[in-house]
Amino acid sequence: MLRFTLFLFSFLVLSTSTDANSPAKSSEKGEHLKYVIHYGIVRGGKASLKLKSDKIDGKEVFHATLTGRTVGLFNTLYKVKDTYESYFDKETLLPVKAIRNIREGSYKRYNEVTFDREKNQINSQRSGIKDVPEGIHDILSAFYFARAYHFNSELEVGQVVKMQTYFSDEEFLLQFRFMGYEMVNSKIGTIKCYKFIPIVQTGRAFKDEDDMKIWISADANKVPVRVQFDLFLGSLRCDLTNFSDFSTSSLIKK
């Protein structure tokens, strides 16, 4: 179950501030978010997201790295260490390259995907070249884009944000429904948050479409504060424990 949770959590961890009218900035150093994952009262895992400037083929890009792994008893029973990386354009926020490095028990999977924007194609190390829709994202870049252009005070309750992504060597439609505002008590204080419900497929782990919830700070940072999963076997929660901003403002502003 924790393996499934870390997979889902990779959809949800974001770390940029957004402003609808200002350009992307590239002079700041970066930021780092840390999360702890609990199943009931038991601490089962932790996750970390780092964002920094980097270069691919001599071009400056943003580089996001998300890691999630088991700890304690969960690590003894079923060891998980997953890493997702995204390199994306500083102006368009569209991905140039994505990496998925999975280690779950005896299962291992590594794949790199590059994006050709002129041809609207991806090139996967595992499955080769495929045609894809224009503007498609990987999982991490999708959220940076969504927060830059969609997650803001103009959202209306009930509104659904949709984004087409490429994940685990297939296209995946990502959907979030805005549910309004809530105050969340967290390790870093009481925070006013946007509340979203990702629209998930029922039957395997979820009983209802609204069994997964995410709270994002309704401030200039707009970081995920809490992610909660109401599963068949109980409730599982991911909480922000530390937010380190190495600059006077976040890297991406739109």
Rank of each mutant, 00 (worst) to 15 (best):
Q159T: 08
N152C: 02
Q164W: 01
Q125D: 14
Q164G: 10
L173T: 03
G189S: 06
K195H: 06
L173A: 07
F115R: 02
A148Y: 01
G128V: 02
V184S: 10
S235L: 10
R237G: 08
D169P: 07
F232D: 13
G135T: 03
Y181Q: 07
F151Q: 08
P198C: 04
K213N: 13
Q121F: 00
G189Y: 05
I122P: 00
K195L: 08
V157D: 01
A148E: 03
M212F: 15
A148S: 05
V200F: 09
L174T: 00
D210S: 15
Q125N: 15
Q159H: 08
G203V: 12
S141P: 11
S235Q: 13
T202G: 13
E154T: 12
S153C: 03
F176E: 04
Q175M: 13
R226C: 05
P133F: 02
A142E: 06
D230F: 12
F176V: 06
F229I: 08
I129L: 07
L174D: 00
F172S: 14
Q125T: 12
Y194D: 00
P224T: 03
L140K: 06
V200Q: 11
Y144V: 07
V157E: 08
D230C: 09
D131N: 14
F178K: 06
F172H: 13
E154C: 05
N185E: 14
N221G: 13
Y166N: 08
K222P: 05
D131V: 14
G180A: 07
P133W: 03
S217Y: 01
